[in-house]
Nucleic acid binder design. Structure first.
Lengths: 341, 341
DNA sequence: CTGTTAGCGCCTTCAG
DNA sequence: CTGAAGGCGCTAACAG
């Protein structure tokens, strides 16, 4: 491992000069810089993350995390990942502040961003609301050179430092594949999705639909339903859809209120194979009890964790992340989680 | 974040004394120690991993990794995880040396361990051969207080620092569950496993068998076959078994030579649903082409990575790991990996 | 038994 | 434009 001291000796200059040469701090003669850089390249010099972090300490780096308040189980998991990251980065002198704001309330989220910046955040992780004011504010963050990471969401037309999310289209596609396997390739299905005004959900829905169109000619997708943002209404809608589609024997359910879906299916008294998205406690229980057939997970904790770590790598090692980090989705059967005999 | 300096000031002693008190180095009066420790507890002091690592540098910590030479695809993946860990721990002043030895050759492995220790390894990660001489050597490592991590294998009666592996019984159980789903709960099956003298494989096989017994009364498990350690022989055996069991329409294949299994199934010309373990390039291709139905993965790269990181956490933060770290297994359908339209 | 000090590698500040 | 020095938190070696 070569250090700036090695380079300094080799170049016959002081470490200070090497530091200036290698970090574009100016105040250095072009010739000296060139010579030092070439030595650094020759010795394959890499900055030591640990030493840098120790020195960084004085900078008091701070990451702001802008989340919703009334978070569902999915975001609780995301949050768990974020908290895990917090403990890991603390030793590196990087702190984290969480700002929670009302869901579907752009004004509140805007306010949170402003506050974060005012309080000295050096970077932002955000689950953005798709609203012109927010978009505009994010553009301004770019102008202010505050890197921000988009978490668990799709926002087009915004150039962010990095984005961390699942591949929504893929997860819908996988739901299709899983349905093919579970159904033996034939049957009648209903699919429920949360607010399709969110691009991610729409992509998932489209992935699912196009899979069935391409690969499952014998599965009739009788309806695709957008779920309301309420547990009881969701229950009622699932129930109604089941009543009005008596041949349906398969359901794909992607919704915040998993209990609603589970109960509605159960209370129908019909033999229905179902695929749920995400692993709420209800889903988990229902899976183990055989009330639902399978689940598709998107590792929310990993998403939260990675979003923070992207910034961590940047601060500690100047790593420029890929524009998009995809966290893989997984299929879960009861056999993955039930207790073994 | 409180530092030893804070504690020193508070206790009216020097940082040296605090260091001795907090790290059981002796040479300190019991009263001083007690007082300092209580202050540390009150201030919720945690050692700073970064600073410790920087200081650790002088110790030149070294992790030895004892692997087989003729590694299959599974161990290539394990190795990739290990190399990933290498780059992460380098900045912390911890190096890694890989010792490769002939598979199924205890003498050679023994020699590798000896050499690793002679060359100053402070810890060992090993994929152990289940042989009395190796076991004895591992016991001696314990006496020498060299922590060692067992990787991707089960060894009873050896108290190790930590073990990292998949849950073999669970992955067999999952194969059963997947077969249930794929087959619709009825059919005739064959199951192939690698050397059952390895405890892990035996556990997986038992997990699979007991699942079918408990939950799939209509699936006839016609035979369980142990695969030889050769590609051509494996092919021949699968072929023979298929011939002598003409009603078989389901196969579970866990073997090193995945190509053998795939080809034998393909060449039989029969309509066979199959579940493979692990994701070799052959398996991946066959999955995408629909020649096999599903795969069960055990994240070998994660296993390699975690094995190293367990020691890393110990060296940098004195973290005592759990005796066993289970890396989850996952189900893979073609829809997980095929290209999206 | 305890205090002091010199690093670990890097960054920043202050002199020159 | 460049060098020297101090400090980030912890450890180890040496003095007392």
């Amino acid at each position: 491992m070569t250090t700036i001291k090695d380079i300094a000796e080799m170049a016959g200059v002081s470490v200070g000069t090497v530091d200036r040469a290698l970090n574009n701090r100016g105040r250095i003669s072009p010739e000296a810089k060139k010579r030092i850089v070439s030595i650094a390249v020759k010795l394959n010099y890499r900055k030591n993350k640990v030493a840098k972090s120790l020195a960084n300490r004085k900078l008091n780096l701070k990451i702001a995390v802008v989340l919703h308040i009334h978070s569902n189980e999915f975001f609780s998991e995301v949050f768990r990942g974020i908290e895990r990251a917090r403990t890991e980065i603390a030793d590196f002198g990087i702190s984290m502040e969480v700002y929670r704001c009302k869901e579907f309330n752009p004004r509140d989220q805007l306010h949170s961003i402003d506050r974060a910046i005012a309080e000295g955040a050096n970077a932002v992780v955000i689950v953005p609301i798709n609203h012109p004011d927010i978009i505009k504010r994010l553009h301004r963050l770019n102008e202010e050179h505050i890197p921000f990471v988009l978490l668990a969401s799709v926002l087009e037309d915004v150039k962010c430092f990095s984005a961390v999310r699942c591949d929504y289209a893929r997860s819908g596609w996988m739901a299709g594949g899983l349905l093919r396997v579970i159904s033996g390739g034939a049957g009648n299905a209903l699919a429920f999705f949360p607010s399709l005004s969110m691009l991610g959900h729409r992509q998932r829905m489209q992935g699912f639909r196009s899979y069935l169109e391409k690969h499952c000619p014998k599965i009739t997708l009788e309806n695709i339903i957008e779920l309301p943002n309420d547990s009881f209404d969701s229950y009622r809608i699932v129930q109604e859809e089941l009543s009005s589609h008596p041949q349906v024997n398969h359901i794909v359910y992607n919704g915040v209120y998993t209990e609603a879906g589970i109960k509605a299916i159960e209370n129908s008294g019909r033999q229905i194979q179902s695929i749920f998205f995400d692993l709420s406690p209800f889903t988990k229980q229902a899976l183990i009890e055989g009330k639902i057939s399978a689940a598709i997970l998107q590792q929310p904790d990993q998403q939260g964790y990675r979003a923070i770590m992207v910034l961590f790598d940047y601060f500690t090692a100047n790593v420029i992340p890929p524009e998009l980090t995809i966290v893989e989705s997984y299929i879960l059967l009861k056999e993955n989680i039930e207790e073994l005999p």
